[in-house]
Computed example of a mutant assay.
Amino acid sequence: MTHTSMTAVRAGLFAAALLLLAGATPTAHADTPPESGNWLVLGVSHGETPAAADGGTMLRCDPPGGGHPHADQACADLTAADGRITALPAEDALCPMIYAPVTAHAQGMWRDRPVDYTETFPNTCVLRARTGALFALDGA
Score class of each variant (00 low, 15 high):
Thr86Ser: 15
Glu91Ile: 06
Pro64Ile: 06
His70Arg: 12
Ala133Ile: 06
Ile85Cys: 06
Ala11Gln: 13
Met109Trp: 06
Phe121Gly: 06
Gly66Lys: 04
Thr32Met: 10
Ala100Arg: 13
Arg10Met: 11
Leu13His: 14
Ala52Asp: 14
Gln107Tyr: 03
Asp77His: 08
Ala71Trp: 11
Thr49Arg: 15
Cys61Lys: 11
Val102Ala: 01
Thr7Ala: 12
Asp31Trp: 15
Ala74Gln: 02
Arg84Lys: 15
Asp77Pro: 10
Ala17Thr: 10
Ser36Pro: 03
His3Tyr: 09
Tyr99Arg: 08
Ala52Ser: 15
Phe135Tyr: 11
Leu137Arg: 08
Arg113Val: 05
Ala11Ser: 09
Gly66Val: 12
Ala51Ile: 07
Asp77Asn: 07
His46Lys: 15
Thr27Cys: 02
His105Cys: 07
Ala106Ile: 03
Thr25Met: 07
Thr79Cys: 02
Ala129Leu: 10
His29Leu: 07
Thr4Glu: 05
Arg60Val: 14
Thr27Asn: 00
Thr25Tyr: 00
Leu94Tyr: 03
Ala104Arg: 02
Ala52Val: 12
Gly43His: 11
Leu88Ser: 13
Leu18Tyr: 00
Cys95Phe: 05
Thr120His: 03
Asp116Thr: 02
Cys95Glu: 08
Pro96His: 01
Gly67Phe: 14
Leu13Asp: 14
Ala74Ser: 01
Ser5Ile: 04
Glu48Val: 15
Leu18Trp: 03
Tyr117Asn: 01
Leu88Pro: 05
Glu35Gln: 13
Ile98Lys: 00
Leu13Ser: 13
Leu94His: 11
Gly43Trp: 07
Ala16Ser: 13
Gly132Met: 07
Asp31Asn: 09
Ala133Glu: 10
Leu13Phe: 13
Thr57Ser: 12
Asp116Val: 10
Ala140Val: 01
Gln107Gly: 05
Leu13Met: 15
Asp112Tyr: 08
Leu78Gln: 03
Leu88Glu: 10
Val126Thr: 12
Phe135Leu: 00
Ala129Ser: 11
Ala22Thr: 04
Ala16Phe: 01
Gly67Ser: 11
Tyr117Gln: 04
Ala93Tyr: 09
Asp31Arg: 14
Leu88Asn: 05
Leu40Lys: 03
Ala71Pro: 06
Ala53Cys: 10
Gln107Val: 11
Ala17Ser: 13
Gly65Glu: 08
Leu88His: 01
Ala52Asn: 13
Glu91Trp: 08
Ala17Asn: 02
Pro96Asn: 04
Ala11Trp: 08
Ala76Met: 06
Trp110Lys: 04
Thr32Leu: 11
Thr124Lys: 05
Trp110Pro: 00
Asp77Gln: 15
Ala90Tyr: 09
His68Ala: 10
Trp110Asn: 02
Leu42Pro: 08
Met97His: 13
Pro34Asn: 00
Pro63Leu: 09
